[in-house]
Design a protein around this nucleic acid. Structure first.
Length: 606
RNA sequence: GGGGCUGUAGUUCAGACGGUUAGAACGCCGGCCUGUCACGCCGGAGGUCGCGGGUUCGAUCCCCGUCGGCCCCGCCA
């Protein structure tokens, strides 16, 4: 079923229930029949003794004609109509006179000859125009303040309807697969690891606080202990961190958890789910299974744990070429345990001016690079510019082979710790691809990244922290090195990536109390602290917890990608600004001092 | 916490060396029009140039501060 068909099906069902005719339900076959249409006036065109309006309801638009000679009364009323008035029109369907059809309208072959009209409501002068042709460029603050008007606009309205169809399709699939939709608390416990919590003071327990959940992680694990075996929820999550185009303080996850499954069970079920939804909503057939990349390979090849594989320009290891080089910067980096890596921008010599290159150097430095070396490739394996003079003839030849470089290309180099070289070139790769439109827009490249490290060392906290979260199971094969070499241990976790965006992730969880306690120990969470923060989980794990695992998807981000938007705000009905402010409701805002007193809070004087 | 871009009519934008009355398009209001569909034509109203301070004979323009919006870094297990 195509997207259009599924929307029409939805419309028909509702109409039958409410006994209401919608604009785009009417077609040529209804010629001569009388209908009552209700909706908003999209445009009005007054021709003296003939008035046209385009009536819009949520199904679409249709043209209504008011003719003085047919219905003087309704014509007189129609004279008062303005944009976005709400009207009810009783009229007869007729075929448009030949030559006046509008091929751009779905209802363009017909029109409604008005017999009577009622003005249900008028409308103030709009703060911005509704027509889709004028959608571009309206200040976002204005759009958010008058969100109800913004939502009348075609693009946003279609995004929100698509979102509804999308989540409906997911629910439909999962219910059929034996999953239960189970709600978990919003007023819950603050989690010490992870992002900053939104806090809610408790009136009945002065001095104590709830936190809004960053995710239902612990509850879904507990539901597995309860024996539900298959859980899902399309649920709001809350994180009090700084915002981005793809981050809102409250966002929606598809949250899932299963018992008695292994990693592959979860990955393949997810693939089936997504290919089903894509087929149903977008008529796109996805090739299964999705590619699976090792974390290490993703970092080495793309410099990212969420690689965009829609274009090449992969990172190449060049250390072997420079290990005995007379170029000390490169040689010393290698001797010191670092690596030299490079990427090749096809035809880059012509694309980039000196000023562009300087900008790229600053760009690289933002991500921790010490600099950004470059050379242009000329005819007959000649090099030009940048660090060319330090590179020997033999090295040039090797570089050209390694990077598949040709006359006119440009090579960028990073010599640093492997981690930094990868990260910088990875960012540069994506930056260049966007800058020079190397990314095919119509592609959907899904992939899994697997075999993540279990831990990483946090320079800021000066201790080992979880890469995923502390309930992630190590790979069974790595249990032995947990204590001896924890940073080498890998986890049973997986990230789901679409077109270079992380849109989901999950893991097999720890279901043995002893192993969980051991992990806390490595993370320097004391037994007392663990009991205080996660005691309920440890208790649950001790009462016959089944092996289990799950995954969560960022619904907003997926929708953003599917709808080709640049921000998740455009797939959320009521989003917030970058300062987490809602201009529509003026939130957050001051509250009465009485309310503060009731919850035992006094504000610090500034 | 930091960097970049930005704020002028209801909206989107232009503007100037610091100098008379700050412009355009769309929208809005009034009039005309029987086949338009982003209708057309004629006329009109509409401005705290984000806010505060400074420099100056004079500031929308220069300087300082501040507030808001967007993008990014840090942050987001």
């Amino acid at each position: 079923m195509s997207k259009m068909e599924s929307e029409r099906l939805f419309v028909k069902t509702l109409t039958k229930t409410l006994k209401r005719t919608l604009c785009e339900e009417i077609n040529e076959n209804d010629k001569g029949l009388e209908f009552n249409l209700k909706g908003w006036v999209m445009h009005y065109r007054d021709h003296g003794s003939l008035i046209f309006i385009d009536l819009r309801d949520y199904s679409g638009t249709i043209q209504i004609v008011f003719d003085e000679t047919i219905s003087p009364q309704s014509f007189k009323t129609a004279k008062k109509i303005r944009n976005e008035f709400v009207v009810s029109v009783l009229g007869v369907v007729r075929i448009r006179p030949s030559g006046t059809e509008n091929p751009h309208l779905k209802t363009g072959k017909i029109e409604i000859e008005a017999r009577s009209v009622e003005l249900l409501n008028d409308c103030e002068t709009l703060p911005f125009q509704i027509e889709e042709e004028k959608e571009a460029g309206v200040n976002e603050l204005m759009r958010l303040k008058y969100r109800y008007l913004d939502l009348r606009r075609k693009k946003l309205k279609e995004n929100i309807i698509f979102r509804s169809n999308f989540t409906f399709s997911i629910r439909n699939f999962l219910q059929k697969k034996g999953f239960f939709d189970i709600e978990t608390p919003f007023l819950t416990k603050s989690t010490p690891e992870g992002s900053r919590d939104f806090l809610v003071p408790s009136r009945l327990n002065i001095g104590s606080f709830y936190a809004l959940p960053q995710s239902p992680q612990l509850f879904k694990q507990i539901l597995m202990v309860s024996g539900f075996e298959r859980y899902y929820q399309i649920v709001r999550c809350f994180r009090d961190e700084d915002l981005r185009a793809d981050r809102q303080p409250e966002f929606t996850q598809l949250d899932m958890e299963m018992s008695f499954v292994n990693k592959d069970d979860i990955l393949s079920l997810t693939e089936e789910l997504l290919s089903g939804v894509f087929g149903e909503l977008l008529n796109i057939k996805l090739n299964l299974p999705f590619p699976r990349l090792n974390y290490d390979d993703a970092m080495d090849t793309y410099g990212s744990d969420k690689p965009d594989t829609r274009f090449e320009m992969t990172l190449k290891k060049l250390s072997h070429i420079f290990v005995n080089s007379s170029f000390n910067l490169f040689k010393d980096t290698i001797t010191g345990g670092g690596e030299v890596k490079g990427i090749c921008l096809k035809t880059g010599s012509n694309l980039l001016s000196r000023k562009d290159i300087d900008e790229l150097v600053s760009f690289a430095k933002e991500f921790g690079a010490k600099g950004l070396a470059w050379t242009k490739v000329g005819e007959n394996k000649t090099f030009d510019g940048g660090i060319s003079k330090f590179i020997s003839i033999g090295e040039r030849s090797n570089l050209i082979n390694e990077l598949n470089a040709e006359n006119g290309d440009m090579i960028f180099y990073q010599a640093d710790l492997k981690r930094i070289a990868n990260a910088v070139l990875g960012k540069l790769r994506v930056h260049l691809a966007k800058k020079f439109n190397l990314i095919p827009k119509s592609k959907f490249n899904f992939l899994w990244v697997v075999n993540f490290p279990l831990f990483e060392y946090s320079e800021e906290e000066k201790k080992i922290v979880s890469v995923h979260h502390p309930f992630t199971s190590p790979k069974l094969s790595d249990i032995d090195i947990l204590i001896s070499d924890p940073l080498k241990a890998r986890s049973e976790s997986y990230d789901f990536v679409l077109n270079g965006e992380e849109i989901g992730g999950g893991s097999i969880r720890i279901h043995k109390k002893e192993l969980q306690e051991q992990i806390f120990k490595i993370l320097k969470i004391t037994p007392e602290n663990a009991r205080l923060k996660f005691g309920f989980l440890l208790d649950a794990l001790s009462f016959g917890a089944p092996p289990h695992g799950g995954i969560a998807f960022g619904i907003d981000r997926i929708l953003m990608l599917l709808r080709n938007e640049n921000s998740i705000r455009d797939v959320i009905a009521f989003p917030k600004t970058q300062k987490a402010y809602c201009p529509l409701t003026d939130t957050p805002s001051k509250i009465e001092s009485m309310q503060l007193r009731e919850v035992g809070i006094s504000l610090l004087k500034k």
